[in-house]
Structures are given as C-alpha cells and as structure tokens.
Nucleic acid binder design. Sequence first.
DNA 1: CTTCTTTCATTGACAGCAGAAAATAAGAGC
DNA 2: GCTCTTATTTTCTGCTGTCAATGAAAGAAG
Lengths: 392, 392
Amino acid sequence: MRSTSLTEAFPAHTPAASQIFTTVLSHGPLTRSEIAGRTQLSAAAVTKAVRPLIEAGYLVEDVAEDARQPVLGRPANPVRVDGGRALFLGIKVTGDELIAVLTDLCCRIRVARRVPLTSREPRAVLTSIAGLVQELLTEADGFGVQVRGLGIAVSGDVDRAAGVVRYSPFLEWRDVPLAELAATTTGLPVTLDNDVRALTVAEQWFGAGVGLSDFALVTVGAGIGCGLVVHGQVVAGAHGVAGEIGHVAIDPAGPRCHCGNRGCVEAIASDPAIVGRIREVTGASVADATAALALAHDGDPGAREVYARAGAAIGRGIATVANLLGPERVIISGEGLAAYDLFAEQIRDAFAAAAFGSAADCDVQTRPLPFEEWARGAAATAIQSFTTSDAR
Amino acid sequence: MRSTSLTEAFPAHTPAASQIFTTVLSHGPLTRSEIAGRTQLSAAAVTKAVRPLIEAGYLVEDVAEDARQPVLGRPANPVRVDGGRALFLGIKVTGDELIAVLTDLCCRIRVARRVPLTSREPRAVLTSIAGLVQELLTEADGFGVQVRGLGIAVSGDVDRAAGVVRYSPFLEWRDVPLAELAATTTGLPVTLDNDVRALTVAEQWFGAGVGLSDFALVTVGAGIGCGLVVHGQVVAGAHGVAGEIGHVAIDPAGPRCHCGNRGCVEAIASDPAIVGRIREVTGASVADATAALALAHDGDPGAREVYARAGAAIGRGIATVANLLGPERVIISGEGLAAYDLFAEQIRDAFAAAAFGSAADCDVQTRPLPFEEWARGAAATAIQSFTTSDAR
DNA sequence: CTTCTTTCATTGACAGCAGAAAATAAGAGC
DNA sequence: GCTCTTATTTTCTGCTGTCAATGAAAGAAG
C-alpha cells in the first residue's frame, strides 16, 4: 500500500492543471499537443502542468501505443489517467435502500452493493451508511489504494456547498447536515448532492455529455427528473430546485399530480402513474411497473395506449427543455427506459412536433441506466470534489 | 473634443480590470474597498486596476460624497463610471420600423428616434440604418464625445459571435451578415444580437437583473419571448434558439399556433392571439391590441375573460421556466404589460399553482418597457462588447 | 492642540502562472 | 549518417495579483 496520507492533496493547484486533468479524464488518452489544443493552453504550459500529475501517479504515459499508423515526425506520447491511483465511494440513498459502489478514479465501478433500509430516521440511515462504507473500505484494501472520498446522492432539495439535505420528501428529512455527519462517522471527505445532479455530473465527465457545454439528462422511472448543464456547469437553481421537468404541466385537463397540479409530466409518465392508469383502463390488477410492462408487451391495447401517452408526455417535456435552453443533446435514461420500445416513437414524434425551429436539431439519445448508476453518479461528485478542490 | 482615435482600446486589459469596471458600472458608485469585497480581489489589485481607468477618464472619483453619515476612520472615496466619457448607438430592427437610441456609457438614453421601414430587403434596411446612424452621429457631435459602438438587435435566430442573422421570420432574412455590412457602412464596431437577448443584457447590467447570476426576462406583446441568464451568462442555445417560452405548449387542446403546434403560450397570450380571441368571443370588430385593451377596460366580460386566460398562460409559462431553471427572479416586461391590471392576478395565481416546491420562492416582478427599451438593449450589447473586448 | 485609533488607499517586493522562442528528442525516409 | 517533420522540454520573460508595510484622513481621547 502507498504511504500517502489522507490529507495529501491532489496536485493540481492551478486552474490550468485542473482543466488539463479533467480534459484527460473525460477524453481518454491524449497527447500533450492535443491537450494544448483542447484547453487553449500553450504546449509549454501543458508540459509543466502534466509533470507533477505524472509524478504523483495520477497521470501515466501510454508508451505502448504503437498500434497507430506511423506518422511523420516525432511520435506523440499520449497521457491518460491512471484509474487505479485512487478509489472513491458513491452511495445513493433512496427511501428504502442504499445503493453503493466503489469506483476508481475513472469512475469505473469495481464493487457494487445494495442494502435495505430499515428506518428513514437520519440517525439510522447514517448508521447504515457507516456500515456500508466500512464494508466497502475493507474491499478497497484489496486494491492496495486509498479511498479518497465519499459521494452521497439524495433526491430532493440538497445544498451541495453546505452539505445539507434541505428537504427530501421520500426520506421525510428537513435540514439534515448529512455531509458533516457522514464525514465525522466515516472519516472520509464527503460530497453531498442531489441525485439527478450527481448523475448529470457522471454523464458530463464520463458519459454522453462529455465535451458538451449544454445538455440535459432526463431520467424516467418512479419520478421524472432532469439534470441540466448550461455553460458547462450543472444548474443548481437559486432556491435549490432546478430541472423539475416532472412537474412541468403539459395538460390542464390531465390527471392530478401528487404536487397538487394537473397534467404534470410525472403524473402521466412516471411508473406509478402508468401503473395506476393501466389499472384504470384495463381493469387488470397490475402490481407494479414490471407487471405493467409485461402486460403491454403481451400486446394489451389499453396498456400500450397508456405507454404511448406517457411517451408523448415525455417528448413534450423534452421539447419544453429544448425550447427554453436549446441544449446540444438530451440524454434519456432511467429505469423506465425498460419500456423504451413502447414509447420511443411517441417521444420522438411529440418532441419533433413541439420543438420550435432549430431547437428540433437537438440530438435526443437514450442510455440504459444500470441500477448502480445512481451511486456511480455520487462517486462522480466525489471525484469532482477531489480533483478540483484545491484549484480555485 | 478629445483627441482619442476610434481605435483607442478600452484600458481594461486584465480580467480583474474588466470585472471591476463592470461591477462599478452596474452597482453605481463604489469605494475601492467595496469593489474589493464584491470582486473577491485584494484592495491592492483594485487600486492598480482602477488607476488606468481613471486616467483614461472612464472612471471618476466622487469627491463630493459628504452627505453620508460620519464614520470612523479615513473616509472612503467612491468611484463611479463617467457616463459622458463615451456614447453608443443601439438600433432595434422590426418588420416595419427602426428604433434607435443614442446612449452614454451608463446606457442612459440621450436621444431616441424611430424611422419607418419601406422595405425589408437587407440592402434597403442597411441603407436606412446607415442614414439613421449618420443622423445620430451628428447629434452625438453636440456632446463632444465619440460614439464607440453600434448595437443592432433583430428578432429571430441571430449568431452574435459571427454577426449573422441566421433566420428572421419577420424580416424574411436568412444568413445575412448584418454586423459586417453595418460595420463597413458606418465605420463603427457593430455588435449584432437577438432582440430579447439584447434586452436581457440591458437588464443584467443596468436593470432588475443587476447582481443576479440566474434570472429570466419575459417579454409580453406581439410575441412572447424570454431571455435567460444562467451562471451569470446569457443563454444563447446550441442551435441559436433559446428562451422560446412563447412556444412552450401548455395545453394540447389550446388554439393552434403559427408554429403549427397547439396551445403554445404565444397562441394564447400574444397580442394578436388576444385580439383574435376577443373578436371570436365578443363578435366585436376589434382592430388591434389597443382596441382590445379598451374593450376590456370598459368592462366587457368576454374580453376580460380572454385576458384572464392569457394571464394564466403566461403564469404557467413562467412556472415552467422556474421549475426547470430555478431563477432568482423573473422580470415580466413588454408592450403587453399595458394590460397588466387585467391579468396580473392570473399570472400570479397560475405561477403559484404550477411552480414546484421552492421554485415558487422565485421573485416575479414587472417592469414597464418604454418603446425605446429594445433599442437600449442593443446599445447595452455594444457597451458590453466595448468594455470587454480587449479583456480575455 | 496633540496623540490615538480606525479605516481606506497606496506602494513596493515578490511569487507564480503561462506564453514565446529556442533547443532538444524521436522517429521516418533517403 | 543526414534531413525532414513533429512532439516535447527548457529557458527566459512579462505580467497579474497577493502580502505586508506605509501613508492619509478623519474622529476620539486626553
């Protein structure tokens, strides 16, 4: 095991170094001149910033890169992030379970765990988190590398800077300073963020949002959420609320939503809304989203119609985002994507119809969302904090 | 008259100087230590950055500020922008007229002009612009200060960086490089931008958006537009379209919009939509928005109901913006504000109902919009270009 | 009236970042 | 081995912003 201490800081003290590291992290192996081009820095600056990062082991030179076609001039040697140099933990807290992952510096998942929650009391949840962290720290010992941070993702109104859960409806929490509590309990630096924003960070750095300064991530499932990146930064909202595409009202005559309004996207296209509506329409006793999906896949016309309506609602919601923000890309993800074949067409049609002018040029793609992905998002926020904390 | 040449650059060569100047411009007279506090710079850095700006005459020291309560210690001497140090022109191009203003460096209007357009041909419009600019330059001679830039605002898809009108439905233009054309004709540095974005810049620097990093400006009138500021920057959209709140669809059963969709905010709450609907409902031969307004103010229940519906649509549109972006403030403005008493209540009610959670904490205010305001926005973009062009 | 205290502003030394240019490195082709 | 080309590094330099000390301009205290 390395003799580095937990307090050893990440050696990117200048904005340039930080930017360079992030670029290499997101864009895979890059030669120094490619880095210089992308970051608008001089080659000299890149060399100087890269050296300490290599010395500290966070970047490594890819010498074995001889498979490339022989080019004129001195061969470039690409630099890449040594994912194995550090480990991170990410935990997603839901109303009834914890999902945790151990990732490397490149946010690749090494270990994943799920633990049911017996209570939603902050104290009990904290204990569960502590236990899970201990367990994963033990696993991490096997890799011989230190865990450098813990990211926690919670749905609801979360103040990342303060590390406080302002209000979480699912957990029934108000003003819980979870970051500080978890930091004290686990001894790790903790980054607390909203779950959708955390997932958005993961996409921005390691997923389909790489290199884009403006994109949106829409999650479909038990709720409908949306993470927004504008001007290269995740939108947090002045009052802690942002990206509430689920509560964009698209039909004053639509079904009532738990928020009290009518015709919210979430009241039409969330899993519970779909299940409820299918029960209503077909009279079948559909237990959950899986059953609903099965029914629709069996060809039940009523169920299929419900999915179609859900797809149209999602498409209209996405079009609203596109009209307002004009993102380069919209990424659709979430557990609800299991039903993608049932509403893909409606999403595209409704989007195309409701997008105004060249907002329709926006690239709409889908990405599967494995169950650990939310926790991976949390880990991504921890990586973000670790690699940018010292750089102003 | 000063012997400065047109090519003399604004003496803010460093990011710090630029930031300091912008801060003083927006926040009125400030002492050096207040500037240091706001900009997170050291007092020393402020002193050094301020000196060349004072020497060049862009900033002046307010010595006469003895009206303040006597405080302990050395009295501070506030610094403010000398508005009279430079002049700017702003022109708003509409389908049938040009609105132009001559402003000072603080974006205070000195002279305003309107000229009808006889043709929408780019060449003809350019000729009209050139004439108007000449006229205002003559006026400017009376002030003994040079005009340092021209801002032009056009509705539609405008690429500010390239200085090209990509597509303007009202003018029926496509890919007109208006900035370059106007620069050649007038000899002035030209900044071309979308009209709503220009107005947003004016609010951000000189209006109700001062000091806010996230706000929205909604304009109500012939169309419904929206300028967005996120992370302190105006949102331009990856494809040139952003802030299209007018084409946010809020009711699938609503009236058809000229964009082909149903239930757009603009199809319910724009002046033409209101006029048309009032004709339909009351059977009266209402000529225009003024007549419609008069009818409603006369107490016609049908007309009042139409305005109420328009207000609700605007409120829902604003709630959508608030749910997605969580701005600190929404500023409602535009010619349509003349009817504000008719739909204020509905806007607030619909907003409160449709805003999710603490998105409802967003401060919604109204601001009257004098007819020259659009042109003033154009001037603001010119000021922005002038004061930040040399600072990287 | 002099001296203190307080706060604002300025100065000069200095550290550190990033750019420019020149030097060096590492092949490929001849 | 020589030349050509491109990549990377080195060296030097300019410049920005910070730090700590100093000056300035009041009111307060004696």
